[in-house]
Nucleic acid binder design. Structure first.
Lengths: 242, 242
DNA sequence: ACAGGACTCGTACAGTGTGCGAGTGGATTT
DNA sequence: AAATCCACTCGCACACTGTACGAGTCCTGT
């Protein structure tokens, strides 16, 4: 899980990341990085990013807050570790057996689901690059899919980046919406009215809001995501044709 | 600037946002929301999201920290206000005169530049929906572009959302990279070596990293962005053809 | 018996957002 | 002229944060 460390890490200096630091050798059968990361994820899932404090985490593990610093250099490193965990939850089918387009489609939907399940991921994506082993595994697999599709050279990574960007960009704002609605005493009709009021000066915009106001917001989001996903993949495919 | 308030705001209840709360009537010639927001942005630009504290902001404005709470209900509302400001910096040409594809292309590049100029934006996107007047203005304009392109009904907003998602998703992780490199004593060669080491178990991935290691990272990012942008727009265009 | 390493954790420090309530000064009303 | 009001300021306090430090505990190897 998170006992990973890239070789030769300590010798060079520049990049501050868990993945480039030799972890302490730990002999204890009790606490461990795994357990800490797992507990941190539970806290994050149930209370959100603000709900994770070292003291709370210590309490959950029945230890002092500062004991955790034996296993983890600081809170940011802990966050790097939990961040990588979510990449492990993303399903990427083998492109050789299901075809590249299916493979990346499934991965896109899976990624979205994982992010929605762990809304705190939105807070981490802008904070640190995804360099952990799980993230690299996903990147490698999707990269293979695009290679199989016929992309060559840098285009492989560009195509890969385009798809990932789309999923991030579509999902992160949705997470913000979900959070905002959870904070308020959510009443879909009143909310729609308010948003409509906000857009009062923009008749065009208003027309769009009115249009999907009567649909279930969840399904609207799904449709929007599919629409964009198909468009992105179509666009990439056109690139191949040329 | 930020004296905006949507009509009928106070009467209804559900949604917690600056944009739905009557601001206090302020008569003073001295401090004002505008000034506070401007100072907050300067602090954010120069010190990042963690550099903005109510005390520092108060000091910068030569006032007590808690005085600011006269103008702003809490820090989150202040962040909503500064968030909307960045939307005001995004250029969206008139699609009627430059054509829809040009218009949205320019807006995509502009949006990316604005985000890179204000890296703290990445931290806000996942935290609150963009409901301010400036954000709505941009949304309205790009929406018009896609309408002009020929999209109809919900597809207008889906297309619009797809493009915005792509820009967000491409730019947010780049901001994370920039931040990580700023934190470290950045040496591009050593960094590349480290990343290569991280990817040692993934020969394919490694090949991609090696490939762009000798290019200037800035231009690689630009190329990647353009590649994806063209792909996304091509994909949307294909949708139109059907 | 001793040494050393592998932990644990209480205390402390500097910082955070913000509720409260007292205070100030100028305009308005009596 | 006196009284009232109100927009506004701000010091203090509270609960909370990440984490440096150093003293203490236990287990293992000699």
């Amino acid at each position: 899980m998170c006992e990973w460390i890239y070789p030769g890490a300590v010798t060079s200096k520049p990049f501050n990341s868990v993945w480039f630091r030799e972890p302490r050798k730990v002999a204890s059968p009790g606490r461990s990085r795994e357990e800490i990361v797992r507990a941190a994820m539970e806290l994050l899932d149930s209370e959100g990013i603000d709900g994770l404090s070292m003291r709370k985490l210590g309490a959950k593990l029945m230890s002092g807050a500062t004991s955790l610093y034996w296993y983890v250099a600081n809170k940011d490193e802990l966050l790097e570790l939990v961040y990588d965990e979510i990449w492990g939850e993303i399903a990427v089918p083998d492109p050789e057996t299901v075809g590249w387009r299916n493979a990346v489609s499934v991965m896109a939907h899976s990624m979205r689901q994982v992010m929605l399940r762990h809304p705190w991921s939105a807070d981490l994506i802008g904070h640190m690059p995804a360099l952990g082993p799980q993230a690299l595994t996903v990147a490698d697999r999707t990269r293979r899919a695009f290679k199989l599709a016929g992309f060559t050279g840098l285009d492989i990574d560009y195509a890969n980046g385009t798809l990932t960007a789309y999923v991030f960009g579509m999902t992160i704002p949705q997470i913000a919406w979900n959070a905002a609605m959870a904070d308020s005493d959510y009443d879909s009709q009143a909310l729609a009215d308010q948003v409509a009021m906000a857009a009062a000066d923009f008749p065009d915009l208003l027309e769009g809001i009115r249009a999907d106001q009567y649909e279930d917001p969840g399904t609207v989001r799904e449709l929007a995501f599919d629409f964009g996903l198909v468009s992105v993949l179509d666009g990439l495919e056109r690139r191949l044709a040329k």
